[in-house]
Amino acid sequence: MKRMAFERPTEHYDQRLYQVDEQLCSLVKQRKEASNNNPGFPPLEDIAKWAEKYQLYEDQLRSIFDILRNEDDFRPQVEPIHFQKYLPVHKSVENDQCLYSVTFIRQYSNASVVNFNIDWDPDEEENSLYHRFWSLYLGEDYDCRQTGGGGTEGHISYHFIVSPPLPDDISGLELVFSETKAPFEKDSTSLQIVISIE
């Protein structure tokens, strides 16, 4: 999904807030470093206590902490440009009456696009696979972002943009797909599909 450009919502800014706002930025950075960029979410009782102590709204604080928890959502997004070629993969893994596969990777000058397919017998599947979410992990050197997908009865496909682009020789690469509890979440369920490329 392409992120919309942000426009400043108002021309007004009270310059007396400049030092306070800069201090807020410094505290956000300090918080990120102290948590090793994995802050979790404060207990709701603590948020209620802080709201009362500092005369703030609980909903406002919950929103702030939710935004701070998902910093990766705000990283600049790479949009693939200049298609170069397809890298054939043709690998699949069967798990619990579902076939998970990657047939190819599209190479662009600035990124790669991985299509992750799930196929199942719709008559055998009681719970819809449409309401599941996935993340892709290729190692610390790569940013993997799900950008959408779609499907029909018995088939669904997810698209992941990977940057920087993968090498043309992808032998030895492991594509680790983890089912997550919600879109763009880090917390995964126990279901993990590993597709190894020889």
Rank of each mutant, 00 (worst) to 15 (best):
V93C: 00
H155F: 04
I81M: 09
V102K: 12
K91G: 08
R31A: 09
E22C: 01
I81K: 06
Y100S: 00
Y142T: 00
V28C: 06
D119C: 11
N95G: 01
K53C: 09
I47R: 09
A34G: 05
E174A: 09
K186C: 10
G40H: 11
E153W: 08
E174Q: 09
H159I: 02
A34H: 12
H12K: 14
R8H: 07
D46V: 05
V176K: 13
E198K: 10
V113S: 02
Q192G: 00
P183I: 05
E185D: 14
D187C: 11
L44F: 07
L68W: 04
E79A: 12
D168S: 05
F104E: 06
Y13M: 13
A182E: 12
G151K: 00
R62E: 13
S63C: 12
G40C: 13
D14A: 15
V176L: 15
D73I: 00
I195L: 10
H155Y: 13
P76S: 11
Y57H: 14
L56Y: 02
K49D: 01
H82I: 15
N117L: 07
I156H: 00
K53A: 14
H12D: 15
C144H: 06
E198P: 09
A48V: 10
F74C: 10
L136N: 05
F104Q: 14
K2G: 07
S26R: 14
I161W: 02
L68D: 01
E79W: 04
E94H: 08
E22Q: 12
E126W: 01
A182L: 03
D73L: 01
D121H: 11
S163P: 11
E52M: 10
A182P: 03
E22Y: 11
T147G: 00
D72G: 06
G150F: 00
D141V: 07
E94I: 09
C144Y: 04
I161Y: 09
V28S: 05
K53Q: 14
I170R: 04
K85F: 02
S63I: 02
F83A: 08
T103K: 11
C25Y: 05
V162L: 02
L17N: 11
V162Y: 05
P9N: 03
N36Q: 14
D168Y: 09
W134T: 05
D141Q: 14
F74P: 05
R132C: 04
I156K: 00
S63Y: 13
P80M: 09
S101M: 06
H90P: 02
E33Q: 02
F133V: 01
V89Y: 04
R106D: 12
D96A: 07
D59E: 15
D59C: 11
I161H: 01
N115I: 13
V28W: 10
L173Q: 11
N38G: 11
A111I: 12
E22A: 04
L27V: 05
T103Y: 11
D14F: 15
P122T: 08
L136E: 06
L136H: 09
S157H: 04
